[in-house]
Design a binder for these strands. Structure first.
Length: 771
RNA sequence: GCCGGGGUGGUGAAAUGGUAGCCACGCGGGACUUAAAAUCCCGUUCCCUCUAAAGGAGUGCGGGUUCGAUUCCCGCUCCCGGCACCA
């Protein structure tokens, strides 16, 4: 019976629709495992190969855990708000609701065909009002706790599209939509104070088992530095300039100060034309230009002098944009002899160096004791600009009342549904298109009942994905974001699989929101962090070794590969390509090798089934070893070596023409099942097994088949391999030594000197030290 | 510059202190076939060698620890990823 994947897939694919075996069972009295893979943005292209790769690996793992008797929660959903759908709507005039529905249906079909064992009863969609009701609710809580405030902030502005852009929408200083150079503009924006949680976000990492690189990325992004704040009096003025420094001991080497052009002091100096020109020039520059690394530093003298608090020396104060308003205090004490940047600036403007002093970090306390300042901590982490002037996002549930100011929409009035609009483009003033819908904007103040206006900004793409892992625990709850008892049962996420590109922002934002909900008492007290393990999946490159992109034309469509090779081969091939977390290039030729393997496996089972009543001892040994080895590999996401072991097994069984009885064939079928679910189901069925192989137990390993009486040991002479010897597993040194010394070659080498020492490692090696 | 991860055959890779290169691709040879495809079998780190036996070299480079190092330690180098005028 030849392997006909199309027939097999068609026969079984529908059997898993609504299949109870893949449901996570709330409160079931088994060990729970919450296995999560990042949900996709549903793009018009459907799932790409990268999705298929990460989802297959996670699916294999989830299937394995189920077979190991765990109660597995393995959910899926769609992160469906976002720019591509909005841009498509701008182009075609079609409501993104419609396109999103079409695309999610297509993706669900792809996932079904790829045999992903998701719990479809828990599917979520971030654009569903029943879902974003709670995204909005979280925002109202942030506001009520003072963690969401509306502030003037500089944002990236596209003068052509007349729209504010988030940093991620600016590519190389240009607008992602039209390619126009962006400018900076000050606009009133909702800002979420994630910096208030900087220390918590650092400290919480100890409660997680993230892989090293993920932890490092988080620590790096938050970037805590310890130092001091030091105040410098200004000559002839009341104000002082406060600076943050990590090296207060360099205070003696300070020869000038620099303040950012945005510093408060600068506003009072604008009568000076040189200063005015410089500040205006700086405003025009984008963040990108200002932080250009190799750029020559520029600045202008402010006319002010500060007093070094430690030695009373007068030092000039400069204004320069290499000092960032957004970090520290927006002012620095410059130590040209000690800091490269200060040095470059001093050389350019011929400011005096002081090379005499010797800094000494141990003096920090002593210097602070002199009353010049106090210890301080600074974080690189910046607050989170939460406003977008886009249509296709969650409306920010806030009302602006002339009497009460900003008022959050009460829970019983949520969700604030996204209204339909005629035009999806932002307005002339840069407000979101929602601003055009007067009847929507005009509302009553929830507090005083007077006339008021709705916020027309929408939330960033991150908002919906910040808490989706909670909703999966209880996706249909109408009274709270998720039932506390259900969260207690399922949380934390045991394994979270995702891309490196989400190791900073998404992971940090979602940890922050979780910690905030924790403080609110909205999530279980005993669970301080949302994710236990975080793994990153690898990247699949095109066959030319470059990132897949439409313009290069190296994109692999998973559907097309599935048409030619079938789901089972596609899945198994992807898992065989290399380690799960590495970067790998697609290789059509290697795909053939995996097809050969799957066919051989399938034929082997068919040729043996029903023909033998017992399996030889050798066969038992091979198959039990396989069950053990693959089990160990799957628990560690080592899919490539698991498949290598299966290949080895089939080769060995075929070569020895081993006769295998149905009981052991059934073991083999269960072992391959997580990788090749359709073929495994067919083989299981043909062995007389009941539907479904995927809810069977992982094969029990009988250790008695794994302990062989004989092993091959290496014979080393001075550490060099000179032969091998067969011996009983528990043979004594004397026995092995005698057997080794019988060998002619060994005798030759031993005769070259005297045996000084013999090292015998049971089951591995015997090493003669000869001199 | 800082942080994280790497460097092993022609290629993807395996081995985490004990026979380096499992498994797979590719390549070479053979079987089957009128022929091709498919399939199956044998070989395939490099050097020396007609071949084989035997030997030598070999996991980025240099050192160290050890009876023994791809694996542990020190120094260097190159590549990939993240962050970066962050005071």
């Amino acid at each position: 019976m030849a392997y006909d994947f199309k027939e097999i897939e068609n026969k079984w694919v529908g059997k898993y629709d609504g299949f109870d075996g893949f449901h996570g069972k709330d409160f079931e009295d088994k060990e729970k495992k919450y296995v999560l893979v990042e949900f996709p943005y549903p793009s018009g292209e459907g799932l790409h190969v990268g999705h298929v790769f990460s989802m297959t690996g996670t699916d294999v793992y989830a299937r394995f855990l189920r077979m190991k008797g765990k109660n597995v929660l393995f959910p899926m959903g769609y992160d469906a708000f976002g720019l591509p759908a909005e841009n498509y709507a701008i182009k075609t005039g079609i409501n993104p609701k419609i396109t999103t529905k079409q695309v999610t249906e297509r993706i669900r079909g792809q996932m079904r065909r790829l045999a992903f064992s998701f719990d479809w009863e828990r599917e979520v969609n971030t654009t569903d009002p029943d879902y974003y009701k709670w995204t909005q609710w979280i925002f109202t809580k942030l506001f009520e706790k003072g963690l969401a405030v509306k502030e003037e902030r500089a944002i990236n502005w596209c003068p052509k599209d007349k729209i504010g852009l988030a940093n991620e929408e600016v590519i190389d200083g240009k607008c992602e939509r039209c390619g126009t150079e962006t400018e900076r503009r000050i606009m009133s924006q909702w800002v979420v104070k994630i910096t208030a949680y900087a220390e918590r976000l650092l400290a919480g990492l100890k409660d997680t088992n993230f892989i090293e690189k993920v932890k490092a990325a988080q620590i790096n992004w938050i970037d805590k530095s310890m130092g001091a704040k030091i105040r410098f009096p200004i000559k002839g003025r009341e104000e002082k300039i406060e600076v943050f420094t990590t090296r207060p001991d360099t205070l003696l080497g300070v020869t000038f100060m620099v303040i950012a052009p945005e510093n408060k002091l600068v506003a009072g100096l604008m009568e000076n034309s040189a200063i005015r020109n410089y500040v205006n020039e700086t405003k025009k520059k984008s963040e990108m230009e200002r932080t250009e690394l190799l750029k020559e530093k520029t600045g202008v003298f402010s006319g002010l002098y500060a007093i070094n608090p430690i030695n009373g020396k007068e030092i000039p104060v400069w204004i320069a944009d290499y000092v960032l308003a957004t970090y520290g205090t927006g002012a620095i004490m410059a130590v040209p002899s000690h800091d490269e940047r200060d040095g470059a600036f001093a050389r350019k403007y011929a400011i005096e160096f002081d090379n005499e002093f010797v800094p000494d970090e141990k003096l920090m306390e002593e210097i602070l004791d002199m009353g010049v300042g106090e210890e301080a901590v600074n974080y690189h982490l910046r607050d989170w600009i939460f406003s977008r002037q886009h249509y296709w996002g969650e409306p920010i549930p806030m009302v602006n009342c002339p009497n009460c100011g900003w008022v959050s929409v009460p829970e019983d009035q949520l969700p604030i549904k996204l209204p339909d609009v005629e035009k999806y483009l932002p307005t002339e003033t840069g407000e979101s298109p929602l601003a055009n819908i007067t009847e929507w904007v005009e509302t009553d103040c929830p507090k005083c009942g007077g006339k008021a206006k709705r916020e027309t900004d929408t939330m960033p793409n991150w908002a919906g994905s910040d808490w989706y892992f909670l909703r999966y625990c209880d996706p249909k709850n109408e009274t709270v974001l998720a039932d506390m008892e259900k969260m207690k049962y399922w949380m934390p996420v045991d394994v979270y699989v995702g891309g490196d590109e989400h190791n900073t922002l998404h992971l940090l934002y979602s940890r922050f929101i979780y910690q905030f909900l924790w403080d609110l008492g909205a999530v279980p007290k005993g669970i301080p962090e949302p994710y236990d393990k975080r793994l990153s999946h690898g990247v699949i490159l095109g066959s030319d070794g470059n990132r897949m992109s439409k313009s290069v034309g190296n994109v692999i469509a998973p559907d097309a590969v599935g048409d030619v090779y079938g789901t089972d081969v596609l899945r198994t091939y992807m898992m065989f390509m290399g380690p799960f977390d590495s970067t790998m290039a697609w290789n059509e030729r290697s795909l053939v090798g995996v097809r050969r393997f799957v066919e051989r496996f399938y034929s082997f089972v068919n040729e043996n089934k029903g023909n033998y009543s017992t399996t030889s001892i050798e066969g038992m040994r091979i198959i039990h070893k396989l069950a053990k080895g693959v089990g160990e590999d799957l628990g560690q996401f080592k899919f490539n070596t698991a498949i290598a072991k299966m290949m080895e097994t089939i080769n060995e069984l075929n070569k020895n023409k081993t006769e295998v009885a149905n009981a052991e064939l059934s073991m083999m079928v269960r072992i391959i099942a997580p990788f090749a679910p359709f073929a495994a189901e067919e083989m299981w069925n043909s062995l007389g097994g009941e539907f479904s192989v995927h809810v069977q137990n992982w094969p029990e390993v009988d250790e008695k088949y794994l302990t062989s009486e004989k092993v091959t040991l290496s014979i080393q002479i001075n550490g060099k391999l000179r032969g091998t010897v067969e011996a009983a597993t528990d043979a004594t040194e004397e026995e092995v030594r005698a057997a080794a010394e019988e060998q002619e070659k060994v005798q030759k080498y031993l005769s070259e000197g005297n045996i000084r020492k013999v090292i015998y490692v049971k089951g591995k090696t015997i090493n003669f030290v000869v001199a």
